[in-house]
């Protein structure tokens, strides 16, 4: 997989949830290029092109980040805060996915710039349906930010 052609960055530490999410996205043909980060630090390295991800470029952001809130090392809110307070990464759509629906987290999340907030269904079928709807909405209905690399190329082509 080309590290600069990732559509979805999935950040989750639960193997069950990762498997279910990948399975549901695959069923919709939306899983061509997903990178899985298992803690907040790895997610930040990926998004900020640092550590093991220095070969990535800010010009090619993922089209969507699915971010769990409870994560080892750096929690989801901190990851969100870093991403949304940096001009290089703030355009990347970040959807918070969490198992608890705390009104406080909801408001903090949206205030920090989360693009949306989803409560993970507990039921297997509901979870699969949720991921399908989520994937279709964010990758098909929604227009993601245009990679600046592509914008520059388009301008040069004019």
């Amino acid at each position: 997989m080309n590290p600069n052609e990732v559509d979805i960055l999935l950040v989750d530490d639960s193997q069950d949830d990762i498997d279910l999410t990948l399975h549901a996205l695959r069923a919709e043909n939306l899983a061509n290029s997903i990178f899985v980060a298992r803690d907040g630090e790895e997610a930040l390295d990926f998004l900020f092109c640092s550590g093991p991800h220095t070969q990535r470029s800010f010009d090619r952001p993922p089209k969507l980040v699915l971010l769990d809130l409870k994560l080892p090392k750096v929690d989801g809110m901190q990851v969100l805060k870093r991403v949304k307070s940096d001009a290089r990464t703030k355009i990347i759509p970040v959807v918070l996915m969490t198992s608890s629906k705390e009104e406080q987290d909801l408001v903090i999340g949206y205030n920090l710039g989360a693009n949306s907030y989803i409560q993970k269904p507990v039921d297997f079928d509901e979870f699969r349906k949720a991921v399908k709807l989520l994937g279709l909405y964010w990758l098909v209905v929604n227009l993601p930010p245009v990679a600046t690399g592509k914008l520059k190329a388009a301008k040069q082509g004019q």
Binding site: A87, K90, I91, I92, P93, G113, N115, S116, W138, N142, L143, P144, P145, V146, T148, K150, L151, A154
Partner: peptide, 15 residues
């Protein structure tokens, strides 16, 4: 692309 990216920069939730 410019309109889309500007919208996200200014905090649009989606486009």
């Amino acid at each position: 692309g410019g309109d889309i990216t500007r919208s996200y920069k200014m905090g649009a939730n989606c486009y």
